[in-house]
Design a protein around this nucleic acid. Structure first.
Ligand SMILES: [Mn+2]
Ligand SMILES: [Mn+2]
Ligand SMILES: [Zn+2]
Ligand SMILES: [Zn+2]
Lengths: 135, 135
DNA sequence: TTTTACTTTAGAATTATTATAAACTAGTTT
DNA sequence: AAACTAGTTTATAATAATTCTAAAGTAAAA
């Protein structure tokens, strides 16, 4: 992903390309594989890898703007912190409780044969399969 | 569920049957159908339906003791509050985002045909299917 | 360049949860 | 039944994740 794409991500999220936001966007999107992160892990990375400061509020605001624009998704994990995902396709997860690690499962890897019909007046929006792992 | 069973629930959770705990246990277990709740909803019910006071810490402690003893389970729901479930069988959920309501799906209602194998050295502990609803 | 609207930031506020430690009580012992 | 002991409740403080605020700074428009 080129720098011009980073600007597009920002613009399409309603964000001006400030230096903080560009750094965040580069870290999130300028890579080959998608990944999962928390605000805390992102903050730690930014503190270590860049010279200037990032207020936590800036990180929260930027991540939420990306999420709102559909450039990030959120994953439900037991625990207190929110996990974000740069994989915005429909997909599923393994969760390794020992390491607190999320592993993607492509939607095509899961085939569901039978599912109940949605309650009256409701439709199915999406199905999330969460596979807990043990050793 | 009779009063004697309430005492068993408490005893098997390592809890003395105090009046607070008996009230909580009666509310949770003395009913025909299982249900989902948060600490907040439980607290509100107890405040409204009983005369004596419940410290929040007592509610948290009692619920956690039931969970640890296997009398309650926890459900991952997007959001900040923890949801508990008096249904401790393996089962799945519909989640109605409009009403923030969880609806049980019996394990037999879901048949999964294909699933990837667990990563090296890991085993599958359990599979949770979460179906998001829309109108 | 000046202006305007948006952005960053430090710190305060909020929310859910957990910890603390003093007052209280259930169950046991005498 | 009184005394004892271990467990319990409670108000309050502490912690952790997140959101809010408002002052100072910056990008883009005029
Ligand atoms: Mn959020
Ligand atoms: Mn959660
Ligand atoms: Zn993922
Ligand atoms: Zn349930």
């Amino acid at each position: 992903m080129k720098k011009i794409d980073i600007f597009k991500k920002l613009r399409s999220s309603g964000l001006r390309p400030t230096k903080q936001r560009v750094e965040i966007a580069k870290f999130l999107f300028e890579r080959d594989k998608t990944f999962h992160f928390t605000i805390e892990s992102l903050d730690k990375f930014l503190a270590k890898k860049t010279t200037f400061k990032f207020a936590l509020a800036t990180i929260y605001n930027t991540v939420h703007a990306f999420k709102k624009a559909g450039h990030l998704s959120e994953v439900d994990v037991r625990g207190k912190k929110t996990y974000f995902d740069t994989n915005i396709t429909n997909h599923h997860h393994f969760y390794d409780n020992e390491t607190s690690e999320l592993i993607d499962i492509d939607a095509s890897e899961v085939v569901i044969q039978k599912i109940p019909k949605a309650p009256n007046g409701k439709k199915i929006k999406n199905i999330e399969v969460f596979i807990n792992l043990k050793n």
